[in-house]
Amino acid sequence: MADLHFLANPARFRRFSQRVLPSLAFATVLMLAVGLYMALIQSPPDYQQGDTVRIMFVHVPSAWLAMAGYALLAGLGASLLIWRHPLAALMARASAPVGAGFCAVCLLTGALWGRPMWGAYWVWDARLTSMLLLFFLYLGHIALSRAYDEPERGDRAAAILALVGVINLPIIKFSVDWWNTLHQPASVARLGGPSIHPSILIPLLWMAATLFLLFVLLVLLRTDTEIDRRRLENAELQA
């Protein structure tokens, strides 16, 4: 009976993901093609930063998705610890590396933006440091979830880390307001509306939507794999 319960939700998830994955992949490729054209060719240079502003179109969406991904991990962690949701642990395993990937893109493209504009690849200001901490939280989550022989124990340890680390999210968001930082304050999600001209804001939001689709695609694909992997592990245990 327990085994049936475990499969109930994952089976429904699998039907859902198999239905949406092909069209999701198609939409992502299409939007990426348009997005790259907007980001690299059609959008104007910035009045201060010139063409370097184009780094923003990957840097900022990656930062958003790295943070959203961690919020997802925390939500999945809570749903595992509180409601013992069978799919939560598998999806958390699947999404942690995706979030870590977007976080790495954010940090590296930020460095490549900082060098020509600020004059430094890296500084230890509050925004950059808290973002680096987010990356290490992701690595910790990945490591913890694989640290035990019984996967369930790893899932729960990682879920606790996800909930503890969620405190870092408001720190990242508001670091630029609470402390003096080299990083500039928020441009899009701020009181008084975005301070970005529409000709630069639209490509930014387009790329954000594109990378969001890619994020969802990766999470669905990898969760599907995790379901299979768990079945394989259960089969090996019984053998």
């Binding site: 690299l40 010139g50 184009r54 990957v58 933006w113 060098r115």
Partner: peptide, 14 residues
């Protein structure tokens, strides 16, 4: 501009 190398490396990294 002269900073094209940074822009291109950023997209390459991504």
């Amino acid at each position: 501009s002269a900073h094209a190398v940074y822009v291109m490396s950023a997209y390459l990294v991504a």
